[in-house]
Design a protein around this nucleic acid. Sequence first.
DNA 1: GGGAAGCGTCGAAGCGCTTCGCCAGCGTAG
DNA 2: CTACGCTGGCGAAGCGCTTCGACGCTTCCC
Lengths: 335, 335
Amino acid sequence: MATTIDDVARAAGVSTSTVSYVLSGKRPISAPTRQRVERAIRELGYRPHAGARALASSRTNVLALMAPLRVDVNVSVIMQFVTGVVTAARTFDHDVLLLTADEIAGMERVANGSMVDALVMMDIEADDPRVPVLAGLSQPAVLIGLPRDPEGLSCVDLDFEAAGHLAARHLARLGHRQIALLGSPQAVLDRHTSYAERMIRGFTRGTSDAGVTGVVEPCESSMAGAVDAVDRVLAALPDVTGLVVHNEVALPWVLATLRERGRHVPDDVSVVAVCPPDVAVGQALPLTNVDIPAHAIGRVAVEMAMARVERSEPAETRLLAPMLVERASTVAPVR
Amino acid sequence: MATTIDDVARAAGVSTSTVSYVLSGKRPISAPTRQRVERAIRELGYRPHAGARALASSRTNVLALMAPLRVDVNVSVIMQFVTGVVTAARTFDHDVLLLTADEIAGMERVANGSMVDALVMMDIEADDPRVPVLAGLSQPAVLIGLPRDPEGLSCVDLDFEAAGHLAARHLARLGHRQIALLGSPQAVLDRHTSYAERMIRGFTRGTSDAGVTGVVEPCESSMAGAVDAVDRVLAALPDVTGLVVHNEVALPWVLATLRERGRHVPDDVSVVAVCPPDVAVGQALPLTNVDIPAHAIGRVAVEMAMARVERSEPAETRLLAPMLVERASTVAPVR
DNA sequence: GGGAAGCGTCGAAGCGCTTCGCCAGCGTAG
DNA sequence: CTACGCTGGCGAAGCGCTTCGACGCTTCCC
């Protein structure tokens, strides 16, 4: 267990630097030598000491992931981001350090303590307090979400504006003239979490482009909140026939409330859910949905981070195009 | 940013070792000197380099957390474990490295690479392939869950057997004579995940102790699975008046199915949920529940890990006593 | 045939920190 | 007045790895 690079070198009859170069590939090593070294490594079960490596190379092969884990965010989507980041990190031979609470202090600790090569931050708000801190760090960071001014920052997210537009257009093209968006909880909007605002913007633009009536209602992530939001929509738009739901937690309750209010899906009202596919197909009726490709976003975030670490590539913002999958919950309105 | 301990020493007019001792407290330093050093640290914004520290002290101040993130496990409970572990780790000045996929290779990598001081492993199965690997590692590990033979291992979990017993007893004492347990998905049982089996054992013992009829049905974590499981229970026990549900994902669908089958909760059937309180109160009706104190279990796991790291304490198994909170979903059966 | 250019390998100098042994200076006791 | 023990601080030796310059050798080209 306590084998060092020197043990390997001795066993292979070479110098320590040769072993190091076999490991890193940074200088050419002849095939026979390389094989001897590799054999010694295998036989001794050697693993380089991460700390020593970090000290000498100033690379840790660790990524920090700052996940909010707030109560009103959807846990399963968060989880998908996390797994996306972790699996992608592994393909770059990196591990993931998880930061949840105490984020500002945490990022300074792991960055200034040289524990990580880069940071990935989730759940970015318009004026996120973490963003200004980044300037003082020597490691690159990638934001999942968009701050108010993304200039000079690496950002990645679903193009929620396009998603809102797409959902609205889909309903309008089916012939719906009165449609509504059930969105994020008020608390999320109050934080100016950008995806919620972009979603609303896209939806609104979609309705006006199509010349249909659209209303937007926030929706708490609880049963009571869902009931309330549905009732508000029905009050504002009694003849509503299309609904876009951008709140996975509330989704089942929204559907239940519609049923209770005597609105059948899809005969009376078509529903587009903005959520991962497993949530969409797991409901009573398979729902037409606009995917939130959390796993892919996580992967892209890591790729961007590694590009900056390994090749000093400049920061850029990437918005992933939304995709709508039609299922049983959206049909043309019955006249 | 690139300030080192030598910079601090120079600024404070002391030697590097003195700075180190101020930081670690391992030797007494006179008050005036200490204050000079602390001031220099503050003014320079100094942070020790984690890698260098790990190399010299062979302590990394990092904990590995192996979270499964399988599809059929409940994500929100997992999340609570994770946050429990992360916050507890911080109180011991440790960070958390998250391992999800590829677990065996991952544990060997982080352990043999000296990346972590200890491992915390979730979702332990009876014959978990990770357990034998532990013997070859030089770091201690704590298991959340119980393997078949916990001898010599650090384990912590809710006492699910007591939980099953408690839930059954609660219903029996209210006067219910025919009760059922809707448990984990078949896949979880097939893995011999111990909590599921212990739950069933406790429930069964509870029913026979109380002299009431009990049946156990596994329950998939999907709407179809919930409907199916409820129907199986109603078929097996047409006069069932008490239900224990140990599957948070299926819980809402179970309640919906009961309603659809014309069984009113709690008038026709009392329901005890085994889940965190927020899930229990978030349903249509606030449910009587046996808590799964995921956060507390995570904290205890970290405490046990640190006890072994810092004070070489021996391994032990700790089962947390279950607690039942009575809410609106359980009443005496109407005669 | 001779100099330049590669190639494969080695040696040694750190990277920033901890820790052990040591020593100077002091107070106290014999 | 010397001897001794304490206290507070210092110096230096690593911890295990990477990386740079150097070296001896072969190959190539004019």
